[in-house]
Design a protein around this nucleic acid. Sequence first.
DNA 1: ATAGATCCTATAGTAACTATAGAGTCAAAT
DNA 2: ATTTGACTCTATAGTTACTATAGGATCTAT
Lengths: 129, 129
Amino acid sequence: MKIGELSKKSGCSIQTIRYYEREGLLLNPNRSEGNFRLYDSKALKQLEFVKHCRSLDISLNDIKRLIELKNKPEESCSSVNALIDQQLALVNKRMKELRALKAELQQMASACGSDNTIEACGIIKSLDS
Amino acid sequence: MKIGELSKKSGCSIQTIRYYEREGLLLNPNRSEGNFRLYDSKALKQLEFVKHCRSLDISLNDIKRLIELKNKPEESCSSVNALIDQQLALVNKRMKELRALKAELQQMASACGSDNTIEACGIIKSLDS
DNA sequence: ATAGATCCTATAGTAACTATAGAGTCAAAT
DNA sequence: ATTTGACTCTATAGTTACTATAGGATCTAT
């Protein structure tokens, strides 16, 4: 299949696919006579792996490491484990930040009487302090 | 005061201060004879306003809008309100995403028996599906 | 006078894409 | 046989909010 079909099947945009290739996350595909990229179902699977990792917010760099690890099936999976743990730590950290954020934003929203002037607005006041 | 002192007092890096100025978030400061930026305490307050907004993850563009609104003290604050509500919606959306993320990552982490080969690793398996 | 700290501008790099320009290729209809 | 339209190619620039660097200029203290 050509890149357009791969794009539809994977849900990744054409540009993103080419970008992943440039970044070394996908193998260089065979080319047709007219230099079009030609993919098989294995390539689709690779792309889906990348997409799944991205949906977990794993960085392209870490995905690259995971792909390398996948290609060493006999080694210990402790590095895979570590990577996932680290990803979890990131997510937890960001969630904590967002909880604090949310609390302050909610407080600000409630500090605004409905029909104030900007001058009297509790929101602007709290941003100023 | 010069930019180094403003940087220390505000906790923003010198480059960030200059960047905010370029982006129109800070007024162009007076300059010394040797072309050094000179700030007063009002400038520090402006910068602190920006910093506080950034700590709430408000985008530079939205901060610009807030600054414009601040300069129209007699108008209604409904746009300020809307902006904060929108920011809250963003935060809520991201939190929801992160909760889903966390759940999947945790499941993956628990799918890995401690001493597997990569080939047998539950994490890689679940990323492959 | 000079050394060191601080400042200046302009430019490039970061992450993970997205968008565009300008050209080439291919399949189908005329 | 040609032309239209859809698709593809590469290379480059833009996005967000900064950070880092190069190559100078300026100021302060000795």
